[in-house]
């Protein structure tokens, strides 16, 4: 049990080190722009059918 806890502790520490080493996130502006466009597409499609629903009800 203790051994396992030690192991987890050391992992957590490693994890912390990792984050310090790579404190700066890599640049993913293009990714962010892409998912925003994806989100916009979903929103426009959904609102379109929602308006159709309101129009028909």
């Amino acid at each position: 049990m203790d051994a396992r806890r030690d192991q987890m502790e050391s992992k957590r520490r490693e994890n912390g080190n990792n984050q310090q080493e790579h404190g700066q996130d890599e640049p993913l502006k293009g990714t962010f722009a892409s998912v925003l466009m994806l989100g916009a597409f979903i929103a426009v499609s959904w609102i379109g059918v929602f308006l159709l629903f309101l129009n028909r009800s």
Partner: peptide, 28 residues
């Protein structure tokens, strides 16, 4: 699925940038 979309674009962008892609969408 939203998380997956981000991960996929990120994999592509990160690879593209490592090959010297520039700009917002150069990695495409």
């Amino acid at each position: 699925s939203l998380m997956t979309a981000f991960a996929m674009f990120a994999t592509f962008e990160s690879y593209g940038r490592s090959k010297g892609a520039k700009g917002l969408f150069g990695w495409i």
